[in-house]
């Protein structure tokens, strides 16, 4: 059980972030959702403390983290989950209007998927150090960090997230702060079925040694493991049914 640990989850108002939030709440965590979309807050605020934050905006993060510290005194766990997926080949010879990968799109993905993790963690880790909190940072990566064709920006961002995970695991360990990443494979979520057609899902299942998609619960179990196991630090937990091996 998480004993009322103060847990900040970015992008926690929907999708995988929400699933993690709900599961950690059931484990007795005090859940704080940082999300740029406040629409679900009315419902979510029954169980969660919700903050409207654009996690690419340094000033907004600083204000939100300050409010959290004033209210709760410390942050025990940060889950950097917020992000977007963007798929586009480096060169698409079939599209004469947009033959090369959009630089604007590249920068946007890096900003949302990589810069946000840097900004959030620098501010939360600073507070953990100041308050002597032996906290945990969990970065949500992806199997795309290995270099998935058609995802230059997303793969670059997630590879960057994994590199930062290892750096922070070394830098912050002296303060008792552990940093780990979770790299989900293909998970059975509405966003997966929206993004991939039935045949592609069938092909992915075939390519995966476990011959199935993962469930959200598998990611949640990895998050709980990363929080509770005091000797796991700098790891990238690949939760993908063996897809990347």
């Amino acid at each position: 059980m998480l004993d009322n640990k103060v847990i900040v989850i970015t992008g926690g108002a929907s999708g995988l972030g929400l699933a993690i939030a709900e599961a950690l709440f059931k484990q007795n965590g005090q859940i704080l959702v940082f999300d740029c979309n406040p629409e679900p807050f009315e419902t979510l605020s029954q169980h969660f403390d919700c903050y409207e934050v654009d996690v690419t905006d340094e000033q907004q993060i600083e204000q939100a983290v300050t409010r959290v510290i004033q209210k709760y005194g410390q942050i025990d766990v940060l889950v950097n989950n917020a992000g977007i997926i963007h798929s586009q080949p480096l060169v698409n010879i079939m599209d004469p209007e947009q033959r090369r990968h959009s630089y604007q799109a590249f920068k946007k993905v890096i900003n949302i998927d990589l810069d946000s993790v840097f900004l959030m963690t620098s501010m939360v880790a600073e507070q953990m150090i100041m308050k002597r909190t032996k906290g945990v940072i969990i970065n949500i990566s992806s199997i795309s960090a290995q270099g998935k064709a058609g995802q230059t920006a997303y793969a670059a961002a997630k590879a960057g997230v994994e590199a930062m995970t290892r750096v922070w695991a070394k830098e912050l360990a002296g303060f008792g702060i552990r940093t780990n990443a979770i790299a989900p494979g293909f998970i059975n979520t509405p966003s997966t079925s929206d993004a991939l057609n039935e045949q592609l899902i069938k092909d992915i299942k075939q390519m995966t040694p476990m011959k199935k998609l993962g469930e959200v619960e598998h990611i949640v179990q990895a998050a709980i493991y990363a929080i509770e196991n005091g000797f796991v630090n700098g790891s990238v937990l690949e939760v993908d049914g063996g897809l990347v091996i």
Binding site: I129, R132, E171, G174, F175, G176
Partner: peptide
């Protein structure tokens, strides 16, 4: 970084 290690060990 060594300074961080010093502080945590002193504390």
């Amino acid at each position: 970084l060594k300074h961080m290690e010093l502080i945590t060990n002193l504390e």
